[in-house]
Design a protein around this nucleic acid. Structure first.
Lengths: 223, 223
DNA sequence: GTGTAATCGAGAAAAATTTATCGATAAAAA
DNA sequence: TTTTTATCGATAAATTTTTCTCGATTACAC
């Protein structure tokens, strides 16, 4: 029972940190230099002690009565995630989802860059999408090795995902960001992060549904 | 302290359910008719009792020694989320992210459909993307009302998100699915679901980083 | 039939996470 | 200079979530 990559940082914290980061970037734009947890808490609807704890994981210390310097805080989060040096990645599946990921400008902020795309469809191979060339899938293993790429993005249909993952792993990929609605099995030492768009949608729809029901309920009670 | 939409179902459960759903769909394709929690647990790397508990929230009951009927289980999850009747939604921001969301075929499975897109850029207005027309943003409020659309998707740059959200809310939108890397403030009774792609990326990168460090550490110890 | 094995459901125990509390510290005001 | 106030950090309490345990149920083998 020691197999898992022993994440000593709570995952909820890990998920909140990028949110702080985006928020702080906005603050910086507005020209704010200093911010307190109380203030962040109001804007993000979180409890100040929790924010303090989360931020403490990045190794930063605040000053009583003052708070944190926005720039220092941003730097601290960047260092924590290693966003200052760029991670180059390969993407497989240049369909709609794949194209969107290639075209999405926002990743540069997080030190992430898709440097090549792969696909099987002859009509897509050879195209250039947002400056990223689409290569035949068969080449992925050798190119992974040659270019020492460690992160792979999967944006294929569900049925192709596992096979693609195995090709990536054979090429030495250590982290897989999976957008296909499928479960990927990977050996120990390879991290798979599943990104399921439906999850967020489901949560939204369910909350909406419950809200409506409670609304109806309230109306009926009020009669 | 009674303000929040009192989600009596644990959110982690809510986030796991779509995962079960996708997994079960795959099982069905392979022709499997019956499945036990033990089996699901092996494939999804989760504990059987937890799966049982999660599934129980959808109101289903399993049969000892047998498990669950895959089709019945799928139906139960569909009913739970209300995926059998289609939710129509408007999208704002027909950039890369917006186009991807419009083009993504996968949403139909979850009873979700983007029926129109809105943008401000004159060169984009009037285009048709995957059968979805792009209309001027100014029309969104009146069209929301006329077509009784209750869900809005925001795929604009961060700075435009709040303003767009307010237009949507003015038109009667009750649920906002936000892909812009910005915090949206909404009145009570409007649900905002933030979808931050960077979150998953950050978790992946951090796990990878920790894995590498522990690997290095191990190597050094072994010397 | 009867026994065995697999699985379920429900409730208890354990773990993780969130929330609250309290003393300490630093800036601003008196 | 002293008092007041806002905020921090650390610890403790409460809550939530996960994991475990156990008796009950059902199919299958003998």
């Amino acid at each position: 029972m020691i197999s898992k990559p022993e994440l000593s940082i709570p995952e909820p914290t890990l998920r909140r940190l990028p949110r702080y980061y985006n928020y702080l970037k906005e603050l910086l734009k507005v020209g704010r230099e200093i911010v307190s947890c109380t203030h962040i808490g109001k804007d993000l609807d979180l409890d100040p002690p929790q924010i303090r704890k989360d931020l403490a994981f990045t190794g930063i210390r605040g000053v009583p009565k003052v708070g944190y310097q926005v720039e220092v805080l941003l730097k601290s989060i960047e260092d924590f995630f290693g966003w200052n040096n760029i991670d180059e990645a390969f993407l497989v599946g240049a369909g709609n989802m794949g194209r969107a990921l290639i075209g999405y400008q926002g990743f540069s902020r997080y030190g992430f860059k898709i440097i090549a795309a792969f696909d099987n469809a002859p009509e897509i191979i050879g195209q250039t999408i947002n400056g990223v060339e689409v290569l035949p899938l068969s080449k992925i293993k050798s190119l992974c090795k040659r270019m020492n790429v460690k992160i792979g993005v999967i944006a294929t249909p569900a049925h192709a995902a596992q096979e693609v993952a195995e090709m990536m792993i054979a090429g030495g990929i250590r982290g897989i960001w999976n957008f296909a609605p499928a479960e990927i099995r990977a050996p120990e030492g390879v991290i798979v992060q599943n990104e399921n768009l439906a999850t967020g949608l489901a949560v939204l729809c369910k909350k909406l549904q419950m809200l409506q029901q409670s609304g109806k309920f309230r109306q009926e009670v009020e009669k």
